[in-house]
Design a protein around this nucleic acid. Structure first.
Length: 606
RNA sequence: CGGAGUGUAGCUCAGCCUGGCUAGAGCGCUUGGUUCGGGACCAAGAGGUCGCAGGUUCAAAUCCUGUCACUCCGACCA
């Protein structure tokens, strides 16, 4: 491929407003161009890399026994109504605009395809003899993200590999889950990504067990908790710690009110009381989420729930919702004032149970010998509040559970005592055990050997292909540009003709290019009539792994220079034939190494 | 959705506060010349309804109102 005849719009300027390294480099290297918020065109170089990722994913999914199909992007709203996700997904679901009754208003752009594949399953998967089966596709997804960001890391249109498996029983699902887990390890290892599998929350997908595949980087939006010893890793949404050491119980005098004027925040109260945040009990008032009432109906009553966490801890709403068994939202100030009889910032658990529907106590609060908390009276706090004495830890209205987010340094829940560290990460893949959520809702059943009908048991497995590119760049770049792993590089080798006016330089460059191409190496040939520095800068920027520089100087020194992008200083001068052989050998070795890394990752995890 | 900010050439920006002549710079692009191993230089060019609509004014990139788009922080998020 001749650079002069190809399309590689590199730029020297850093794009305005881009902060993530991958975003800056993808734009500067001419991989992508933004068209609208969260909407990107893939330019030729970007598309080549994306195709490579796609091919790795396809090969490994096929190897794992999954079967490719293709479902449409346009999907009928009625299917989403069958599972209720037209409501639960809310604005994420992009609906086509049209007048009421128009066919357009009955269509939505697919954000994920559980409903669509389940529609296929209920039509065709009617016998246990067809099971298990795993169907997948690689296809554009559309989501009404409120705030796209960080280049292609969070977009409204993106490319996803989504797979759905169907089973007769839990054991079969478990086996396929492990199979997919291993396949994912192979995929990410082959793509050259330093990845990590973590326990995850199942979110709106439903189901009970899930793992996310993460790449650690500051540009990521997720936070993962990883133990230093490596024995535990989980998304912060789900991460739990071993119970903290219990403080010695001192003599517990009766609670005492203290005047704390205008001190509503924890730090303000601590300043007045002279206590530490970890000796405080934070009381947060939540209400259940009630759907808007049908016309003419009264809205359902919102339940009121108080949640307690230690003053130095943050409440984890994912865990809280799980403990409550339903989604909750922070109560309006008016509700808080009504419940506590005080202005916001002075709530406490004493005497609160009678005025609320439920009390959810974090287990680290339950083990406090005593604490300071709001007095349910404006401008007053109470010290010496003893859990179990001054507010209940048991009873029909009370739940004690882990509802806080872990903090850096908490002990690993495995019991190893290894401290947890919090790191930012990009989610590149997610595997779920769905169970029968969709098959139940949509009536997707199979007949067993005895002729009895059962709902299909499902799993689902997603990979964000665009995110793999961005994550690879986040993980592999330097100040000069991208350093592609061989497996997903848009080109494997770059031939640079430094003096294109010298006929010998051109002849040698062209011959090396042709021989590499004939040997199956994906090679780009920079034949442009530009100065050396200009071409070197572009070469560094687009990050092709192997470089062959042909110039008057190198020819005078006996040949051409061969170097690798990842080790800029190391150059070898070889005769042209030897250079071709060396590059072919290097490409083969590197391809094999990544496939082997994938296989090893798969064996280890599987 | 809440908060903040930005829209002027393909890209990065100046000009706006304090209205005034033909709207500027750098990069990129075209032509000619010089240069040629780490983003060269000279000269001559092409390229802009100053996001859009309305208003104020003798006069609007500049002031006012509305609107759209984009970015950042937060909320939300398979």
């Amino acid at each position: 491929m001749l650079w002069s005849r190809y399309f590689v719009p590199t730029t020297k300027e850093t794009p305005k407003d881009a902060t993530a390294a991958s975003h800056i480099l993808m734009v500067r290297a001419g991989l992508v161009r933004q068209l609208a918020a969260g909407v990107y065109s893939y330019l030729p170089l970007g598309l080549r890399a994306l195709h490579k990722v796609e091919q790795i994913v396809r090969e490994e999914m096929n190897r794992a026994g999954a079967i490719e199909l293709r479902m449409p992007c346009l999907t009928p709203l009625s299917l989403w109504e069958e599972t209720g996700r037209d409501a639960t997904m809310g604005d994420v679901l992009l609906r086509l605009a049209g007048p009421a009754g128009d066919w357009r208003s009955g269509l939505v752009l697919g954000p994920t395809h559980e409903e669509i594949v389940t529609e296929i399953a209920r039509a065709y998967l009617s016998s246990y003899k067809q099971l298990p089966i795993n169907l997948y596709q690689i296809q554009a997804k559309f989501r009404g993200e409120a705030r796209p960001k960080s280049g292609v890391l969070r977009t409204r249109e993106f490319l996803m590999k989504d797979a759905y498996s169907f089973h007769v029983d839990k054991a079969s699902l478990d086996a396929e889950y492990e199979n997919m887990y291993a396949a994912y390890c192979r995929i990410f290892a082959r793509a050259g990504l330093p990845f990590l599998a973590v326990e995850a929350d199942t979110g709106a997908m439903g189901g009970d067990v899930s793992h996310e595949f993460m790449v650690l980087t500051e540009a990521g939006e997720d936070v993962v908790a990883i133990s230093e010893s490596g024995d535990y890793a989980a998304n912060l949404e789900r991460a739990t710690a071993a119970p903290l050491p219990r403080a010695a119980a001192a003599a517990a005098p009766a609670p005492r009110e203290v005047h704390t004027p205008n001190a509503g925040r924890i730090d303000e109260v601590c300043a007045v009381l002279g206590t530490q945040p970890r000796e405080m009990i934070k009381t947060l008032i939540y209400t259940t989420v009630v759907p808007p009432p049908a016309p003419g109906q009264k809205p359902a009553r919102k339940q009121r729930i108080a949640a307690l966490v230690r003053g130095d801890h943050e409440i984890n709403e994912v865990k809280l919702n799980r403990a409550a068994g339903q989604p909750l939202e922070l109560a309006e100030p008016a509700v808080i004032e009504e419940v506590t009889g005080a202005k916001v910032g002075f709530a406490g658990p004493q005497g609160l149970v009678e005025r609320i529907d439920r009390l959810i106590v974090d287990r680290e609060v339950a083990t406090l010998p005593s604490g300071a908390t709001g007095a349910n009276r404006s401008d007053y706090h109470v010290v010496g509040v003893v859990p179990g004495r001054d507010f209940p830890l048991a009873g029909p209205q009370v739940i004690v559970a882990d509802i806080r987010s872990v903090v850096d340094g908490d002990p690993s829940p495995t019991g190893s005592g290894s401290p947890l560290r919090l790191r930012k990460a990009i989610e590149i893949g997610h595997v779920f055990k769905l169970g029968t959520k969709y098959s139940d809702a949509m009536g997707a059943k199979f007949l067993d050997a005895g002729g009895k009908a059962h709902p299909l048991i499902m799993g689902c497995y997603g990979i964000g292909l665009n995110r793999i590119l961005a994550a690879a760049i986040e993980a592999h770049h330097d100040a000069d540009g991208i350093i592609w792993p061989m497996s997903i590089a848009p080109f494997e080798a770059l031939v640079i003709a430094l003096d294109p006016r010298e006929s010998e330089v051109v002849q040698v460059s062209q011959r090396i290019h042709d021989e590499l191409a004939a040997a199956g190496v994906e090679v780009l040939y920079d034949d442009r009539d530009e100065r050396a520095g200009f071409k070197f800068k572009d070469a560094d920027l687009i990050g092709v792994p192997l470089r062959i520089v042909v110039g008057k100087k190198s020819l005078a020194a006996g040949g051409v220079e061969v170097s690798e992008r990842r080790t800029p200083g190391q150059k070898r001068v070889l005769a042209p034939d030897a250079a071709v052989a060396a590059v072919v050998e290097r490409v083969r070795a590197e391809r094999a190494a990544l496939v082997e890394a994938g296989a090893a990752a798969g064996r280890k995890r599987g």
